[in-house]
Simulated assay, not measured.
Amino acid sequence: MTKWILMGRDGTGVVAYAMQGPTLIRSAHGPDEAGALAHLAFDAARTIHVGDGAPDTLPCTILPESCTRLPALTQTNPPDVIGAWVRVWIAGALANRSNWDGVICVTQGDVRHWIHVSAGEAVSCQSTLTPQLTTALEGITPPDANAVADSLSRPERLAAHLRAAQVTGNCPAITGHLIGAELAAARPYWLGQQVILVAPEGDASGIASALSDQGVPVETHAPEHLLPAGLSKLAAAFNLTS
């Protein structure tokens, strides 16, 4: 089987994955590409760079139709950019779900993306800065359920709700108001949909409980758990399984 490497930046440096066909052999991390490859110590016939090339514009297939690059995703209206790693995670989440239709909500760094998926395509997205704002305002989880409900029903009062929570030192309410306002903005993406949450361990707990309170079917997965299946799907898409 073809030996190949997938590598790209992960926020703290560069991560590289050694692959043999659809099978993940090992991974390594370094401050830059040279460092990651040195730690990986893997001879490969091909290296694919995550985020390489011009982004693909939504709607488009989850994985690229070209077998030479793994670019990010972009959307014109509303303007948005989704990191290329998200494509691998989504592919992993859908590995055993043929023709799945629903919404995948992905937390990547300090951005959360709501992505409508249908017939193997990412159709559209709505993104928010809720994780960044929660950190900046010192919100904590679990979120206050009453705060979620208040801002979900009256998102126009978000700024006033946040000020009241800040003055009283109610950190769970800060998180709750931000999540409530996000759910109000993203309502077309989750109302009546199946939702898969992809986020680092623990980071999705607040929004998962808020969605469950609205009667939304929710599954939660950590990106690293989806990675092996996503890489296997990428190998198949790029004809690297033989």
Results as ranks from 00 to 15, higher is better:
residue 152 L to V: 01
residue 4 W to A: 01
residue 111 V to F: 13
residue 189 Y to D: 02
residue 213 D to L: 14
residue 58 L to S: 07
residue 216 V to C: 11
residue 132 Q to D: 11
residue 167 V to H: 13
residue 115 I to E: 09
residue 235 A to V: 10
residue 64 P to D: 05
residue 114 W to T: 02
residue 31 P to G: 14
residue 147 A to T: 08
residue 26 R to A: 02
residue 56 D to H: 10
residue 13 G to W: 05
residue 168 T to V: 02
residue 229 A to N: 09
residue 241 T to S: 10
residue 211 L to N: 06
residue 20 Q to V: 08
residue 229 A to D: 14
residue 115 I to G: 07
residue 238 F to L: 08
residue 207 I to E: 12
residue 185 A to N: 06
residue 167 V to F: 14
residue 224 E to A: 14
residue 79 P to A: 09
residue 17 Y to M: 11
residue 101 D to M: 07
residue 113 H to S: 09
residue 10 D to H: 13
residue 154 R to P: 03
residue 69 R to Q: 11
residue 104 I to M: 04
residue 11 G to M: 05
residue 165 A to D: 03
residue 220 T to L: 13
residue 210 A to R: 01
residue 160 A to G: 10
residue 225 H to I: 08
residue 132 Q to Y: 10
residue 180 G to T: 02
residue 104 I to K: 07
residue 73 L to K: 13
residue 99 N to A: 15
residue 69 R to P: 00
residue 141 T to Y: 09
residue 90 I to L: 15
residue 46 R to T: 00
residue 61 T to V: 04
residue 234 L to C: 03
residue 105 C to D: 10
residue 179 I to D: 07
residue 45 A to R: 14
residue 193 Q to P: 03
residue 202 G to V: 00
residue 150 D to A: 08
residue 78 P to Y: 08
residue 68 T to L: 11
residue 131 P to Y: 00
residue 25 I to F: 09
residue 177 H to D: 05
residue 78 P to K: 15
residue 214 Q to E: 04
residue 46 R to H: 13
residue 85 W to G: 12
residue 205 S to A: 12
residue 2 T to N: 03
residue 128 T to P: 04
residue 32 D to T: 08
residue 114 W to H: 06
residue 60 C to L: 05
residue 190 W to N: 07
residue 212 S to I: 15
residue 180 G to V: 00
residue 114 W to D: 02
residue 4 W to H: 00
residue 55 P to A: 11
residue 167 V to G: 03
residue 193 Q to S: 04
residue 115 I to S: 05
residue 141 T to Q: 15
residue 54 A to D: 09
residue 213 D to W: 06
residue 132 Q to E: 15
residue 91 A to V: 13
residue 65 E to W: 03
residue 124 S to G: 03
residue 27 S to R: 12
residue 51 G to I: 00
residue 71 P to D: 11
residue 167 V to K: 10
residue 9 R to P: 01
residue 66 S to W: 10
residue 117 V to W: 11
residue 89 W to F: 15
residue 222 A to W: 08
residue 169 G to V: 05
residue 222 A to N: 14
residue 135 T to W: 11
residue 16 A to K: 03
residue 140 I to V: 04
residue 65 E to G: 12
residue 26 R to G: 08
residue 221 H to I: 02
residue 65 E to C: 02
residue 150 D to Y: 03
residue 93 A to G: 12
residue 175 T to N: 01
residue 98 S to N: 10
residue 107 T to M: 15
residue 141 T to H: 12
residue 6 L to H: 03
residue 58 L to Q: 02
residue 48 I to W: 03
residue 97 R to G: 01
residue 87 R to V: 07
residue 168 T to I: 01
residue 26 R to T: 07
residue 148 V to A: 03
residue 99 N to V: 10
residue 225 H to N: 15
residue 5 I to E: 04
residue 41 A to E: 06
residue 54 A to M: 10
residue 139 G to S: 05
residue 180 G to H: 03
residue 93 A to C: 13
residue 241 T to M: 10
residue 198 V to S: 07
residue 132 Q to G: 14
residue 175 T to G: 00
residue 167 V to C: 09
residue 26 R to S: 12
residue 60 C to T: 10
residue 66 S to N: 12
residue 84 A to Q: 10
residue 70 L to P: 05
residue 51 G to K: 10
residue 127 S to C: 01
residue 32 D to V: 00
residue 163 R to F: 12
residue 1 M to V: 09
